[in-house]
């Protein structure tokens, strides 16, 4: 344990980066998931097919491959675009933070698409008819009826998506993000104690997953406060 002295602050800042990646990719993931679900439920054939391709592609490929593709792919694409504007530019550096965050958000968003789609289909048709009868517009029905009913149905699987999101952040260290895995690698070259250093990383991630699980349980309770005894 002595080897850990002097590394705690590095791990702390690494954990802060994990938290940042998590929050940024979470909001993006919800956006992609909702867009995907709405496309799948829309009447437009094109939107349905696009969303279908999106879910098949991103659910069928390994996360590491997607992160590598986003990182290296965006680097050469942005370089090519930059060279059109200014031929002097040799190479555009893409920050691993954003390449990784967007990659895991798109990836987990494909799972969220299916969850949200199922939850929207689970909304009681009677509630929507009631909203219509009250003269609510489509947008009002969406905000006041569909969303409040669907999020309770979506929450349990959505909690699992959040857990996979937090665990996927570890993969971003592969493209050089200075999060906890990266800190551990540095600490190992100095101290020569790989087991201790990686166990700390494991403990940090376990802490994150525990917090997410507890929060999801709390929110689930909150969501059920008015439905207890109903059904």
């Amino acid at each position: 344990m002595d080897a850990l002295i002097g590394w705690w602050d590095d791990y702390f800042w690494g954990a802060v980066i994990v938290g940042k990646v998590f929050l940024c990719s979470l909001s993006l993931m919800i956006t992609f998931g909702l867009l995907g679900a709405m496309a799948k439920l829309s009447n437009s054939r094109i939107a349905q097919n696009l969303a279908g391709i999106y879910t098949v592609v991103f659910r069928g490929t390994p996360p590491i491959l997607i992160i590598l593709l986003f990182y290296f792919g965006s680097a050469i694409t942005l370089t090519a675009i930059a060279q059109i504007i200014d031929p002097e530019i040799k190479f555009v550096d893409v920050p691993p933070f954003w390449a990784g965050t967007i990659a895991i958000a798109v990836l987990v968003g494909s799972y969220a698409t299916e969850t949200f789609r199922g939850a929207f289909l689970g909304v009681n048709p009677g509630s929507i008819e009631a909203a219509r009868a009250l003269g609510m517009s489509n947008l009002q029905t969406f905000i006041y009826v569909r969303i409040p009913e669907m999020w309770r149905l979506a929450l349990p699987p959505f909690g699992n998506h959040m857990l996979s999101l937090i665990k996927d952040t570890a993969l971003i260290s592969i493209i050089g993000l200075n999060e906890t895995m990266f800190v551990a690698k540095q600490a190992i070259t100095v101290t020569g104690q790989p087991f201790t250093m990686y166990i700390v990383v494991g403990a940090i991630y376990l802490g994150f997953s525990t917090v997410v699980t507890v929060v999801v349980m709390g929110v689930e309770k909150f969501g059920e406060r008015t439905t207890v005894g109903a059904l």
Binding site: L163, K167, D168, T169, A170, L171, S173, I174, M181, A184, I188, P194, F195, T196, M197, Y198, I199, V201, G202, Y205, L206, S209, T210
Partner: peptide, 14 residues
């Protein structure tokens, strides 16, 4: 609760 990558690294490097 922990990423599989961390588990692989603990076993292989650790």
């Amino acid at each position: 609760g922990t990423p599989i990558l961390v588990q692989i690294f603990i076993i292989y490097y650790g």
